[in-house]
């Protein structure tokens, strides 16, 4: 019946649309790297005030950077991640963009 054919077509069209929307929006990670200069209090403050992380989360991420050498502090579309990396550089933190696997 025409309704069935119609719904099948719609589903295919939907799949195509979703595929197109998903591809360019592949998520990117914002990675902050450890360095011996930036103070723990400063790094924790930046994570809280810029990303809006809770004090517990900010502390956890700061300690992860300190002990493991790096931490993913945010993820999102490429443009947002670029913006975040640029902001981290303005704060003097070593940050890089990384394509999510």
């Amino acid at each position: 019946m025409s309704t069935t054919a119609g719904s099948t077509l719609t589903r295919e069209a939907q799949d195509l649309a979703e595929g197109a929307a998903v591809l360019p929006q592949r998520p990117y990670h914002v990675v902050v790297w450890n360095d011996p200069v930036n103070l723990m209090s400063y790094v924790a403050w930046v994570f809280r005030s810029y990303f809006g992380h809770s004090s517990e989360r900010a502390h956890q991420l700061m300690m992860q950077v300190h002990t493991e050498g790096r931490a993913v502090v945010a993820s999102g579309p490429r443009e947002k991640a670029e913006q975040d990396v640029t902001a981290m550089h303005s704060y003097g933190l070593q940050a890089t963009l990384e394509e999510a696997e």
Binding site: S41, Y42, W45, S49, S54, S55, E56
Partner: peptide
């Protein structure tokens, strides 16, 4: 810098 950010962390609103 340490004294400034310790003071700033103290006054950030709690979660």
């Amino acid at each position: 810098q340490e004294t400034l950010f310790s003071a700033m962390l103290d006054v950030l609103p709690e979660d």
